[in-house]
Amino acid sequence: MLDVTGLQKIYPGQQGEVEALRDLTFDLGEGELACLVGPSGCGKTTLLKCIAGLMRPSSGSVVLAGTSVTGPPPDMAVVFQEYGRSLFPWLRVRDNVELPLKEKKLPKQRRRELSDEALDAVGLLKSADAYPWQLSGGMQQRVAIARAIAYEPRVLLMDEPFAAVDAQTRADLEDLIRTLWKRFSMTVLFVTHDIDEAVYLGERVLVMSSSPTIIQDDVTIDLPDERDQINTRGEHRFAELRTRIYAEIRNASQSATAQPQEAGKAH
């Protein structure tokens, strides 16, 4: 469904070039829910922007359902980390959700159906006529999610969507993502720096190294399909997976601090 091959991104900088991504290769199957986890500053957002077609990689390719991605592909939706800034403050919640549908030239009736369904799925049908700034942070992120589902994408990208909400809201939103994923059968790529979140959500966790970044490991999460904030997190297998990924990320960040001269050679 989504094939990323040999992706590299080098930023031109004032003190020479900065290699954010070195060589990333992975693929996602149809209907998979994969989490991408890595230490902070490892270029997660850069990778996501390359996949979303918002940024051109320096080399390598992104192929979505057989078509090479050169600009934002039509059947992909993105939920950004900065929920407050990705909603239009001058549009009401429903208009925010329906804006992309208008651009798809869907008839009014159909737009209404889709926005109703999406807002209902995230539990915000009652707030359809509110403005985003009248809602709490968690609710705003739900609106952004509703906008993404109403778009009926085949692939949903999420860039650390819950980094800025409180713990309880976060747990609710995680369960919401699993529910939506099953209900709307999309391929989901979820980027996070939180290992617990990655293990809890994903069917698969891709572990990124520190910058310059490669895919360090690809872990299949063999937890039961029905997950529960209390029981799943309490399971022995959850702890094992969590520990394994934690160790890898710690190794990654330690080796990164130990090899500055190698990073210099790359330029």
Binding site: A52, L54, G71, P74, F80, E82, R85, W90, L99, E103
Partner: peptide, 26 residues
């Protein structure tokens, strides 16, 4: 806001609607 610009690009909002809904309102 660059995040709104990215949002519009992702959802294919362009042309007149991009101008009126994003740029002028913002």
């Amino acid at each position: 806001d660059p995040v709104l610009i990215d949002t519009c690009r992702c959802y294919g909002v362009r042309g007149r609607r991009w101008l009126t809904t994003l740029v002028l309102r913002s």
